[in-house]
C-alpha cells in the first residue's frame, strides 16, 4: 500500500457551540482516489473544511506529507498544494470564467498547456471563457470549480459532491474527467453520495457517521460485500443508485 499523503488523527471540530467532528481518523493514500461516504449531516463537508483550515480543529492533528498542517491558515494550506472544490462550488459569479481561472492560478500566469488540457477536459470552460460565471448552468459551474482546482499542479484535491443535482449525462462526463485527472498522479479525496459513481472511481473508501469514521478499507472489498454496505449505510445507498 502506498504511503499516506494525508492523515487525520483524532480530529475534533467545533462550530460555535456545536461539537461536529468527534475524533476523525482518516488516511488518504498517495496517488489514488479516496471516497468519503456517509449520510446527510454525517460531517463529510466539515471534514474537508477542517483539512482546508476553514474550520480549525480543536483537538487532534492533521499531517500532510511530512508536515503538520493542523494550525496553518487556509492560504498556507492551499499553497502547500491542497485545493478544495466546495459543496456550493464557490464560483465568483460576479467575475467571468476567465477571471475565475486567473485568480485560481495563484502563483502567476496560467500554464497554457494545462489550460488547453482543462479546456479539453471541460469544453464549456473554453466555450464560455469570457462570459460571466454567474450565467453558467449548475453543471458548468461544477466544471469550472474543478477546473480552478487543477489549473496549477496540486498534490491533493478535496472535492465535495461534484455530482450533486446534476443530470446523468453530466455525471458521466464529470466522472470521466475525474478518472482522467486520477491518471495524472493527483491524489483525490472525494465526498460522494452517489455510490455507483463512487465505486467506479474510488480506490479506498471511508464511511462517516455522526462525526466519526465508522469504516475504512479498500473500495473493491466494500463493493463485493453487500451485507457490509447495508450495515454501514442502510437504505441511503440504495436510494442513490
Amino acid at each position: 500500500m502506498a504511503e499516506n499523503l494525508l492523515t487525520l488523527s483524532g480530529v475534533h471540530t467545533h462550530i460555535g457551540p456545536y461539537h461536529i467532528l468527534q475524533g476523525v481518523d482518516l488516511a488518504v493514500p498517495e496517488g489514488g482516489v479516496t471516497v468519503l461516504l456517509g449520510r446527510n449531516g454525517a460531517g463529510k463537508t466539515t471534514t474537508l473544511r477542517t483539512i482546508m483550515g476553514l474550520w480549525t480543529a480543536s483537538q487532534g492533528g492533521i499531517r500532510f506529507g511530512d508536515h503538520v498542517i493542523t494550525k496553518l491558515s487556509t492560504p498556507e494550506i492551499s499553497r502547500r498544494g491542497i485545493a478544495l472544490v466546495p459543496e456550493d462550488m464557490g464560483i465568483f459569479t460576479d467575475l467571468t470564467v476567465a477571471e475565475n481561472m486567473i485568480l485560481a492560478a495563484a502563483n502567476g500566469p496560467m500554464d497554457p498547456k494545462r489550460l488547453a488540457w482543462i479546456k479539453e477536459l471541460f469544453p464549456p470552460i473554453g466555450n464560455f471563457w469570457n462570459s460571466s460565471a454567474g450565467t453558467l448552468s449548475g453543471g458548468q459551474k461544477q466544471m469550472l470549480s474543478v477546473a480552478r482546482a487543477i489549473i496549477e499542479p496540486r498534490r491533493l484535491i478535496l472535492i465535495d459532491e461534484p455530482t450533486k443535482g446534476l443530470a446523468p449525462a453530466i455525471i458521466k462526463a464529470m466522472t470521466d474527467a475525474l478518472k482522467e485527472l486520477k491518471e495524472t498522479d493527483t491524489t483525490i479525496l472525494l465526498v460522494e453520495q452517489n455510490f455507483a459513481m463512487a465505486s467506479s472511481i474510488g480506490d479506498t473508501v471511508a464511511v462517516m457517521d455522526d462525526g466519526r469514521i465508522i469504516h475504512s478499507g479498500r473500495m473493491d472489498e466494500l463493493v463485493a460485500d453487500v451485507a457490509l454496505q447495508e450495515k454501514l449505510m442502510g437504505l441511503s445507498l440504495e436510494a442513490h443508485q
Binding site: L54, S73, T74, L103, A106
Partner: peptide, 11 residues
C-alpha cells in the same frame, strides 16, 4: 462575494 474561497485559492 466569497472570501473563504479566495483564501482556499491561496490568497
Amino acid at each position: 462575494e466569497n472570501g473563504e474561497m479566495v483564501e482556499a485559492l491561496g490568497y
